[in-house]
Structure formats: structure tokens, C-alpha cells
Design a protein around this nucleic acid. Structure first.
Length: 305
DNA sequence: ACCCAGGTCTTTT
DNA sequence: AAAAGACATGGG
């Protein structure tokens, strides 16, 4: 196979776009940097690096599995892909969001304003559901760079290989491929106690239990729905809802947000996940609270405030 | 050596 | 229902 190439102008989008912030903010673990410097903190050259991934077919977007490479040069998004990358990039990186309108809904809040200011142009991602589910099952008690390493290892060990112009790209393994692994095999990759979670969840998905079935449900029902998968509690469920299934009001209550609540929004701590979630979602503006959460996460984790 | 990391599951009050 | 303990592993 060979690459087609093309580019698109970010000035044609509704609002700004920052590729590095979007891909390296710990939302998606399915992209890799061609220069091998993924998650190198404070990398000043990251803005021009190539990012690459293998994208499964997406309903109403692309019929075939596609290798996609992309980089940002100022206002231009340059791509190489085994097909037309524009609709795929638009889907994966939420280039169809009206970011200016979303900024408008952000409540007046000094911390939030600093976070939005620091990473202006960062968008949420729309990861494919199964790889996203596995990514966040792996995320339990794990650092961002290692979560990424695990997904790369899963792809390298058990995913299909695609050759394009002499280079090999590894697709993320299908549910059946992961379901057929043994717990011991997955532990070999360093998944630790998450290994049986991933294997058993893969079995469920391979058996027809589709995480995307939560789409269209009322938000809290959708969150509850995903917790049927092994290794998925309220927090991981929120991550899949936000970073894959388009529930932009979802606010994953991870350790960083918990401490942000303690330090900046103490009245939102209501004891239980359910009630604290309701309070913080309201505080962060409701409909797009997940956007605010992701800016806060990236800003706080990056050493801000 | 010791502590922590985008939590979840199981068992015990 | 709420709290406590177990769980793997690599990097600081």
C-alpha cells in the first residue's frame, strides 16, 4: 500500500486547534510519535512532530481500516494516509466541534481560565470504542506514559501488521484476538493485575456486548451500563463516555480532579462518586463539563498551579 | 528501599 | 452503604 497526502487549514475550523496538546494530553493512548518522543514533557519541537495511528473502519466515516499520519505546521494540518484522511481526522480529533462556542459556555473561574489559556486549541478525542475501553482498563494506578506503552505493546504483539511504503504499522488487536490471549500472556506485556480484566472484557465484547451500545442512553444510565465490563468502575466508564462515545458532559473523577475539587471546589465534594459528579459537572458548566475537566487534568498534571 | 501512578474488586464493618 | 485491603510493575 501507498500513502496519499494532503493538508487542511486550521483557520477553516470553528475555533483553534493544537495537535500536540490534543494527542499528548492523556486522552488517547492509540497514537504514537514518529520521533519516539511521545510524552517527553515540555518538548518544544512537539508542535511539528508526526503522529501516527491505525484507524479501524468507522461507520459513516470510512469503510476501510486506514493508516494515518499527521503533523501540524502552524495553521496547516499535513497528512499522509492510505485513503482520504480528512473525514477520519475530523472524527478522531473532533475537528467538527465549535471550540469557540464551547469556550463560551465555560464558567468564569480563574483556574479554568488559566488552563484554557495554557492549552488553547486542545480538543477532545473520539477514540474507537474497544481500544479506548482497553486503554482505560489499563489506566488503573498507572502513569500516562506507561498506559501508552501498554497499548503500543498490545498492538505490536497481537495486532495485524500493515505495510505501507516499506514501513510496518501495528493495528490495535480486535476483541477476539485479545479474548484468545491467556492472562499469563497479557501479564508478560506488563499489564499486571489488569491482565485478567482486559482478557475477560475482550471476551464480553467479542461475544457481542458492545460498549457503543451506551450511545443514545441518558448519561448516568450510560455510565452505569459500561461498568458491566470487568475492570470498569465509574471513573473508567466516564473516560470511555468522554473520550470515545461523545458524552461531553462526563467528568472522570480521577486523582487529579479529586485534588482539584479539594483545593478549588470543596463544596462539590459530596462523599459519593454519583453526587460529587453531579456537583462538579454543574460547576464546570454542564453540557461541556468534560472539556473543562480535560483542560484541568492536563494543566494540573503539567505542573500548572 | 520506599512511594506513587487517570482504580477496581473483594471482603469486612 | 461505607471503609479497608489486595492487587503488579516500573520509574523517581
Amino acid at each position: 500500500m501507498e500513502f496519499e497526502t494532503g493538508s487542511l487549514a486550521c483557520s477553516d475550523l470553528d475555533g483553534p486547534f493544537d495537535l500536540q496538546a490534543t494527542v499528548e494530553s492523556g486522552q488517547s493512548y492509540l497514537w504514537d510519535r514518529a520521533d519516539g518522543r511521545m510524552y517527553d514533557s515540555m518538548d518544544v519541537h512537539g508542535g511539528e512532530a508526526w503522529y501516527e495511528t491505525v484507524v479501524p473502519p468507522i461507520e459513516d466515516v470510512s469503510d476501510e481500516r486506514m493508516v494515518v499520519r499527521v503533523r501540524q505546521l502552524d495553521d496547516r494540518l499535513e497528512w499522509e494516509a492510505t485513503g482520504d484522511a480528512v473525514p477520519v481526522l475530523t472524527h478522531l480529533l473532533r475537528l467538527d466541534d465549535d471550540l469557540d462556542a464551547i469556550y463560551e459556555t465555560t464558567p468564569d473561574d480563574p483556574l479554568l481560565e488559566r488552563a484554557y489559556d495554557a492549552y488553547e486549541g486542545m480538543r477532545l478525542v473520539r477514540d474507537p470504542p474497544f481500544p479506548c475501553l482497553v486503554s482505560f482498563i489499563c489506566s488503573a494506578q498507572m502513569r500516562v506514559s506507561r498506559i501508552h506503552g501498554m497499548q503500543m505493546a498490545l498492538a505490536e504483539s497481537y495486532g495485524d501488521e500493515l505495510e505501507v511504503e516499506g514501513r510496518t504499522f501495528d493495528a490495535f488487536p480486535s476483541p477476539d484476538r485479545l479474548a484468545d490471549r491467556t492472562e499469563a500472556e497479557l501479564r508478560e506485556l506488563g499489564l499486571g493485575y489488569r491482565a485478567p480484566y482486559v482478557q475477560r472484557t475482550a471476551e464480553m465484547v467479542a461475544g457481542g456486548d458492545d460498549p457503543a451500545d451506551a450511545v443514545g442512553m441518558e448519561y448516568e444510565a450510560a455510565r452505569e451500563r459500561l461498568t458491566r465490563f470487568v475492570g470498569v468502575g465509574d471513573k473508567v466508564s466516564d473516560c470511555v463516555l468522554l473520550f470515545s462515545l461523545g458524552f461531553l458532559e462526563a467528568v472522570p473523577l480521577d486523582t487529579w480532579i479529586q485534588s482539584a475539587i479539594a483545593d478549588h471546589y470543596p463544596d462539590c465534594d459530596r462523599g459519593s462518586y454519583r453526587e460529587t459528579s453531579r456537583a462538579i459537572r454543574r460547576r464546570l458548566g454542564g453540557r461541556y463539563a468534560g472539556y473543562a475537566q480535560t483542560y484541568l487534568f492536563h494543566y494540573l498534571r503539567g505542573g500548572g498551579a
